[in-house]
């Protein structure tokens, strides 16, 4: 390898080097796309799980289970003899609530995107961006709240196992819990990022001429919204067996 020496960047000779914000931004953009790529594989694994379990429908357990719904019962009442196994209970979750969660995530992404456009279009220091960032975070919080409500409705059953009763979910319920938990984890990350953007823009670290990080966050935010649309579509189109 033949090399020649060359000063390609300013140095203050105290061990520090400075890179242009555009260079750092390019690097961070690649990183966020790679992260989204990894997240895409995770989403693929969740979708594979959902469709596979629905497809094989082992022991007809996709949406029903040989057991007793837990509503109004406890393990003690079962042990007292109130246990008549029943099957074929459809346990499909609310489609409309699913789409409300999707809507909340899409709206939060749109709010952040609008905020970013305003920030980038501003010629002077635009003080409205913190409002957009915190609003987007608030809407993402609504998505979490709705998702938690949805998760609470995943039916749980007492089923017989090795001479005792245990709590179980159908495979549909299990897959929906996995998807819901994934949404919550992503939304929590969005909220942290949104709060970070709010504080940073309020402190002037983000401004009309330093908006790169807003774009990075927006990439991820939009990806979360898009993935929620895909998952919402899948769970709507391919629910019952």
């Amino acid at each position: 390898m033949t090399v020649t020496d060359n000063h390609t960047e300013h140095q203050d000779h105290s061990g520090a080097h400075h890179e242009a914000p555009e260079v750092v931004d390019g690097r961070q953009r690649l990183a966020i796309w790679l992260f989204i790529g990894g997240d895409f594989v995770s989403m693929g694994a969740l979708m594979f799980t959902y469709l596979y379990l629905r497809g094989v429908n082992t022991t007809n357990g996709w949406m029903s289970i040989v057991g007793m719904p837990t509503q109004g019962r406890t393990l003690a009442t079962l042990e007292a003899g109130d246990y008549t196994p029943i099957t074929n209970i459809e346990s499909k979750l609310s489609t409309s609530l699913n789409w409300e969660i999707v809507l909340a995530l899409v709206v939060s992404a749109a709010i952040l995107w609008i905020g970013e456009r305003q920030l980038r279009a501003a010629r002077t220091n635009d003080r409205s961006f913190p409002f957009y960032a915190i609003l987007a975070s608030a809407v993402a919080t609504v998505a979490i709240w709705l998702q938690l409500e949805q998760l609470q409705k995943v039916p749980q059953y007492f089923v017989s196992s090795n001479d005792s009763s245990v709590l179980m979910h159908t495979t549909y319920g299990s897959a929906m819990m996995a998807l819901g938990t994934s949404v919550i984890i992503h939304a929590v990350i969005l909220i942290l990022l949104g709060i970070g953007l709010t504080i940073r823009s309020a402190r002037g670290v983000i401004s009309h001429d330093r908006w790169f990080q807003v774009r990075l966050v927006r990439f991820f935010w939009v990806w979360v919204a898009v993935s929620s649309v895909i998952l919402g579509g899948m769970t709507t189109l391919f629910a019952g067996h």
């Binding site: 379990l53 289970i65 495979t171």
Partner: peptide, 17 residues
Amino acid sequence: MVGTSFFVASQGGTGWL
């Protein structure tokens, strides 16, 4: 931990997954 049945064949899951 929470009673899902991804890999529990008796409750609708499958070890193949």
